[in-house]
């Protein structure tokens, strides 16, 4: 019991710190790729603290509710992950957050929010099946959906699930709001339809969304790390390389439209996943 409480507390403290830090590193890396110096590494924390202390304004009280609900769902998902719970359940919980974010944006009458919300739904539609299939792949390999069992698995999963990992990379690009998939909203000074989904979130509520996003990032990177759970070096290396690739992708591609995204994610992602799953079946 005490162990559980400790894990929960540690996760709730460490995840946003780590998430913010990763976001800061991301911004520096992006700036360097654009021959700029970039902000200090703690910049995301400055942003969030500032937002938390701004005047709370909202266009609609439901939006306040949805911001809180999004943050709670993202936190619960990461905590469940830390506790080694069921992977599918974690993914569903994470999806709850995404849905509340969308509902909050839809509750505004601004067309910008509306378009952003619908694009976010399409993004969810694009990546959700792939995430489920990744979980299924892990199950077929390790015989369990429980994250604790996956962690304890003896060999790196990446060797058996390379294509599923590629599909997960696709998901990551969408979830991190990176080009070419940053349709619903964008990050770090990019603008897309006046920030799309986030148009009418403001002040502390925007900060909640940002913190929730950090939790989501941590969740996905943690999921990536499961693919080399046998050694710390392998885990860190894998995640670092993956993230670096994401940053490069972000900077060398242009934003595309949702049709392309949906087609690409489903055609490419589902093919990769299915091929990998067939391997696992045949074996």
């Amino acid at each position: 019991m005490i162990d559980t409480i400790l894990v929960v507390a540690a996760t709730l403290v460490a995840a946003p710190l780590l998430g913010g830090l990763i976001s800061g590193l991301d911004r520096i890396a992006t700036a360097r790729l654009q021959s700029r110096v970039g902000p200090p590494v703690v910049q995301p924390f400055h942003d969030v603290i500032k937002l938390l202390n701004k005047e709370p304004v909202a266009v609609n009280v439901w939006q306040v509710f949805c911001a809180y609900a999004y943050l709670s769902a993202s936190m619960i998902a990461v905590v469940l992950f830390a506790l080694g719970s069921d992977l599918l359940l974690v993914l569903f919980t994470q999806a709850v957050g995404a849905v509340f974010l969308v509902v909050g944006a839809l509750s505004s009458t601004s067309p910008y929010s509306l378009v952003g919300a619908h694009r976010e739904l399409l993004q969810t539609l694009s990546y959700e099946p792939l995430l489920v299939l990744v979980a299924v792949g892990i199950y077929l390999q390790t015989g369990s959906f429980k994250i604790a069992d996956t962690r304890a698995w003896g060999a790196p999963l990446l060797l058996k699930l390379p294509f599923l990992y590629a599909a997960l990379g696709l998901v990551l690009t969408i979830k991190l709001r990176k080009s070419p998939f940053d349709l619903s909203t964008s990050h770090h000074g990019h603008q897309e339809i006046v920030k799309g989904l986030l148009t009418d979130y403001s002040g502390p509520f925007l900060a909640f969304v940002e913190i929730g996003h950090w939790f989501d990032v941590i969740l996905l990177l943690w999921l990536c790390s499961l693919f080399w759970a046998t050694s710390w070096t392998g885990m860190i290396l894998l995640v670092a390389v993956t993230y670096a690739l994401e940053v490069v992708t972000d900077n060398v591609t242009a934003r595309m439209n949702w049709r392309w995204m949906l087609g690409y994610a489903w055609a490419m992602g589902l093919t990769l996943s299915v091929v990998n799953l067939i391997w696992l079946h045949v074996r």
């Binding site: 700036a31 700029r36 970039g38 902000p39 770090h188 000074g189 006046v194 148009t199 403001s202």
Partner: peptide, 22 residues
């Protein structure tokens, strides 16, 4: 915003939306 001046050094971001702006 360009690399020459790079105001993101100071944490400055050009947002398009009054609800986000300081």
């Amino acid at each position: 915003l360009t690399p020459v001046y790079d105001i993101e050094r100071f944490g400055i971001i050009n947002v398009g939306n009054p609800l986000h702006a300081d």
